[in-house]
Design a protein around this nucleic acid. Structure first.
Lengths: 190, 190
DNA sequence: ACCGTATGCCAACACCTGTTGACACGCAAT
DNA sequence: ATTGCGTGTCAACAGGTGTTGGCATACGGT
């Protein structure tokens, strides 16, 4: 038995499968991304996928591993929270198709929706909770932020709505930052 | 041959198929909603679906027929545009699952995404254009509104994010109306 | 009453899906 | 050299998919 720290020969295959899976899931969604297509992209046999990831669900679970990597919001000037967040999100998934894969799959796959809920209810809510406003409101504030952020991602990467696709990240930040800012620090209506 | 105005006997079947199709597409998405399941819901044979709608794509095209029914925005006080819009959208699809079906399908089905683009790029942009601000900006304003509106729908009906699901329509309107108001009538940033 | 046709069901096709088990190769340790 | 195991390929299974053609039946016009 090789040492667990020593890289095994199959690690390259595992990585190739994961890369191909992310691409296919992002491009086609959960059901259209077939194991055969993923295996073909990775240039291996479909049965390898099963051996290394157990099932299609298991493969997706591994491929959709995602961390928002939210920055420490306590060290951000409170007036710039909105801008920092939009910019971070855009940068985060403009270069990583994992979230697009998750987004596409969440529409039809319950497990993916569950994971999406975890990411935006746990990670984001936790980050919002750090600059302690009214605890009773943090969940709602985080939810509202998620609604605008996910709407931006949905229109830009999934539906590909022209006015949103054609707008530069900087312009998007300028328009959307005030929205998040109000959701985060604005006084509740009513 | 029966008169085209006279209701034919099969109209009930056609309607039952359409109703079942909308339900299934809304609940399961395009690929998981099988013709057999739809036919079973409508209590008819799968081949009937093919005879009346030609193909699964044709059935979806018929089931996803959707009109935003946007009110005449010229007769709305400009300061209340945001509120009127959020309230209208919430009411519009809280009682009609067609848009949820379209939303779910748009993630994986190119035709559905195309239709979604049509709805929000044509109908919404046209409505925004009626209260004539800078024409060069109307498309972008409409796109931003779409991003928040679709994000709301996505988090509330698809991902079912708890803080958004648990919030009453009135509270959602209070929070989100100012966002749309700024996207519609606010001065451009920069 | 008759006949054409609209309506419906049944069985089957061809294809694709996730998944499985048997078998071959090559490397590493004994 | 031989043994054991990690790695990989091949073929096949069982089930589900959209879709098609043929056959019964019941309705509506004459």
């Amino acid at each position: 038995m090789t040492s667990p720290t020593r890289s095994r020969r199959s690690d390259a295959t595992r990585a190739a499968i994961l890369r191909a899976a992310r691409e296919r899931f992002a491009a086609d969604g959960y059901e259209r991304a077939t194991i055969r297509a993923i295996a073909a992209d990775a240039q291996i046999d479909p049965s390898m996928v099963m051996r290394y990831y157990g099932s299609k669900e298991g493969l997706f679970a591994a491929a959709a591993e995602f961390d928002l990597r939210l920055p420490d919001l306590t060290s951000v000037p409170p007036a710039h929270l909105g801008e920092v967040l939009v910019r971070h999100f855009l940068a985060r998934w403009e270069g990583d198709e994992t979230l697009v894969a998750l987004l596409r799959a969440a529409s039809t796959n319950p497990g993916a929706a569950e994971r999406m809920r975890g990411i935006f209810a746990d990670q984001l809510t936790a980050a919002v909770a750090t600059f302690g406003s009214d605890p009773a409101l943090t969940a709602r504030r985080a939810g509202l932020v998620a609604s605008q952020i996910l709407g931006l991602a949905f229109t830009r990467y999934i539906v590909r709505l022209s006015p949103i696709v054609d707008t530069t990240p900087d312009e998007l930040v300028a328009w959307i930052a005030p929205t998040l800012q109000r959701y985060l620090t604005g006084t509740p209506p009513g």
